[in-house]
Every structure is written in C-alpha cells, then in structure tokens.
Amino acid sequence: MLLIPCPWCGERDVHEFHCGGEAHITRPAGADTIDDAAWADYLFMRQNPKGLYYERWNHAHGCRKWFHVVRDTVSDQILAVYQMDEAPPDIPGRSS
C-alpha cells in the first residue's frame, strides 16, 4: 500500500489521498477556436506511460492540498514531490 509524502503533512497512507491523474495537461484557452479533435485531446487523451509518470494527487482526507508526484508506474516508487506551481523536475538517469 503506497505511502505518499504529502508536502505539508508528511508520509501518509494512500487511502487518505485522491489521485487526480496525469499532470501538466494544458486546458486550451480560447476553446472556441479549436476543433473538436483538439478539445477531445485535452478532455480524454492521456500518456498513460509505463515508467516515469507526472501526476497530481490531493490529500483529500488531510490538508486537502493538491500537489504533484513523480512516480514510476512499474515499481510504484515515488521519485519526487513538488508543488502545483512548480515546473516538473528532471529525474536523474530517467527520461520521461
């Protein structure tokens, strides 16, 4: 059972958290000007990578803050945690 390091509360059981899925998806501004396919790309299409994954989590049953996690989806090992307004960190030796 995953142990997630909330940047505010420290390590907590995964069941205190809500997973928000893939991070750094840009919601198109001026959506009226893009076609259905581009909108669908935003709404539904996902990287779903096997390996390095940048994702969002929410400490739903704790401080309720959202934050980013970098996790290896094969080992489930968490490699980095960073704030919502931070740029995704590079993970040494790993490419996304």
Partner: peptide, 13 residues
C-alpha cells in the same frame, strides 16, 4: 485502485 500503475499490485485497503 485510483492511480495508474503497471505493477499488478494494488493496495490492501
């Protein structure tokens, strides 16, 4: 489980 994973392992919860 609520998160993406290829580990074939989920949480005991």
């Amino acid at each position: 489980d609520s998160y993406v994973s290829y580990s074939q392992r989920g949480g005991f919860d």
